[in-house]
């Protein structure tokens, strides 16, 4: 359930070209509202993110939701990466919360240390967030994050997944999907782009640690994202949220299509939205009409080669991944398939 400020200003909001219910059809509590003047703005304007950056959008909504849920008693530890770089270089900072960047691979351990300090000082009202991109999470930060889950430190870890190392020039990470072009998986040779059959599924790995709460979210559905962050803050112990954040620079997509691509990732089945508690799946976001993966892929130059003659098998393989997700997470609304 989404908490809406008392001073909300109703806006007329008619979505077109999508299958999402329009704002006017929702009940009051669920309607989109314009930000109020007392919005926390944890991540302030003036930062250096690219146009259409999914990560900036995701981080702003996630951290603000966490601020509301904790009565502004929040500290964040950030891994090295786009989010760290575009929000800070001294003497400027876009963060209006206490924020620390230490290293690329240790955000989870730093956050765990902050949580321990708060506990030692009897300030358990102060809550802690660790955040990083997919590289800082699934690759170099994997050990520290797994250790944090193991100890069940009172930390929410947020991974902004844009499926490659964008800050350093778009290299492959273990979250890069099959066929995707990156600087280290170029579309050349017999299997152009990233190899199929590689990579990690961090939300499932997080679930395997049996931590209190795991969820996936996407920047096309900010209400759902805020809801999941709010819910995560109602738990103590380790929590993990992975937010799907399109990257126009790395994906070769139009900045204006970030939301569309994020929505299509979900509606094709490429990025399932679900929630899990204590290692058990407790909810999924259903898809009413499954979109073919082509609709999602054609908006991104990183997949351009899959439409070339001779690469049909890659397109098929991506469709199989989407179909398998739908099957595995039971994503289809009843009778809609």
């Amino acid at each position: 359930m989404v908490e809406v400020s008392e001073t909300k200003q109703k806006i007329k909001f008619y979505q077109t070209g999508t299958l999402t219910a329009g704002n006017r059809l929702l009940d009051e509590g669920h309607r989109s509202v314009q930000a109020t003047i007392d919005r926390s703005n944890s991540l302030d304007s003036g930062h250096r993110a690219c146009q259409g950056c999914g990560e900036a959008l995701g981080a702003r909504y996630a951290i603000d939701a966490a601020m509301r849920a904790t009565n502004n008693q929040l500290i964040a530890a950030n891994a090295t990466g786009c989010l760290e770089v575009f929000t800070t270089p001294y003497p400027e900072t876009a963060w209006s919360i206490p924020w620390i960047h230490s290293l690329f691979g240790n955000a989870a351990a730093v956050a765990g240390g902050i949580a321990a300090a708060m506990k030692a000082k009897g300030r358990e009202d102060v809550r802690v967030i660790a955040q990083g991109g997919d590289g800082g999470t699934t690759d170099i930060g994997f050990g520290c994050m797994s250790g944090m889950f193991d100890r069940n430190d009172d930390v929410l870890y947020i991974c902004y997944n844009n499926q490659a190392y964008m800050n350093t020039g778009v290299q492959r990470s273990s979250a890069t999907p099959g066929a995707a072009r990156t600087a280290t998986t170029m579309p050349v040779g017999e299997e152009p782009g990233n190899e199929f059959g590689t990579g990690k599924n961090m939300p499932l790995i997080a679930m395997a640690h049996q931590i209190p709460y795991v969820a996936t979210a996407s920047v096309h559905d900010l209400h759902d994202l805020e809801h999941k962050v709010t819910k995560a803050m109602s738990f103590h112990g380790s929590r993990y949220i992975e937010i799907y954040v399109p990257c126009p620079l790395g994906w070769g997509s139009k900045p204006g299509q970030t939301i569309t691509i994020a929505r299509l990732a979900v509606e094709t089945g490429m990025f399932p939205l679900f929630e899990a508690e204590n290692g058990n799946l407790v909810g999924v976001t259903k898809i009413r009409h499954q979109q073919p993966v082509e609709e999602y892929l054609k908006l991104q130059r990183r997949f351009a080669h899959v439409f070339k003659k001779g690469n049909e098998s890659q397109l098929e393989a991506l469709q199989v991944i989407a179909d398998n997700n739908i099957e595995r997470f039971d994503l289809m609304s009843r009778g809609k398939r």
Partner: peptide, 23 residues
């Protein structure tokens, strides 16, 4: 608080966090 960490990298990283938080 006594933290059992997964590596020496984690051990000092946790201290970086706790020290930065004033402990």
């Amino acid at each position: 608080q006594f933290m059992l960490v997964e590596s020496e990298f984690g051990a000092l990283s946790a201290c970086i966090g706790s020290s930065a938080a004033g402990a």
